[in-house]
Simulated scan of single mutants.
Amino acid sequence: MDLDAVRTFVAVVDTGQFQQAAAALSVTQQAVSRRVATLEKELGVRLLTRTARGARLTVDGQAFLPHARGLLQAEERAAASVRPGRRALRVDVVGRRFGPAGLLRDFHRAHPGAELDIVTHYDADSAIAAVRSGTIDATIRALTLPVRQLPDGIDAVRVLDEPVQLLVGPAHEFADADAGAVAPGRLAGRRIWMPDMAPGTEWAVYYNDLAAAFGFTIDSGGPSFGTEPLLDAMAESPALTTFIGERTRFVRPADRGLRRIALHDPVPVYPHSLIWRSDNPHPTLAAFRAHLDPARAAHRPGTGVWLPDWAR
Rank of each mutant, 00 (worst) to 15 (best):
M1W: 09
D2I: 06
V10H: 07
V10K: 12
A11E: 14
A11Y: 07
V13W: 15
G16L: 13
A31P: 11
R34Y: 09
L39T: 11
L39E: 09
E40S: 02
L43W: 06
R46E: 09
Q62M: 15
P66W: 05
P66A: 14
E75R: 08
E75H: 05
E76Y: 06
A78R: 15
A80W: 03
G85F: 05
R86M: 15
R87C: 15
P100L: 01
H108T: 13
I118K: 06
A124M: 12
I128Q: 03
A130P: 10
T135N: 12
T135G: 14
D137I: 03
T139D: 09
T144I: 07
L150E: 01
G153T: 00
D155I: 02
V159S: 07
D176S: 10
G180A: 08
L187D: 08
Y206S: 07
F214A: 05
T217I: 05
M234F: 06
E236I: 06
E236A: 10
E246F: 04
F250M: 10
V251S: 08
A254R: 03
D255H: 04
H264N: 11
V269T: 11
Y270T: 04
R277W: 09
A286I: 08
R289I: 12
H291P: 09
D293Q: 08
R296Y: 09
R296L: 03
R300S: 02
W310L: 02
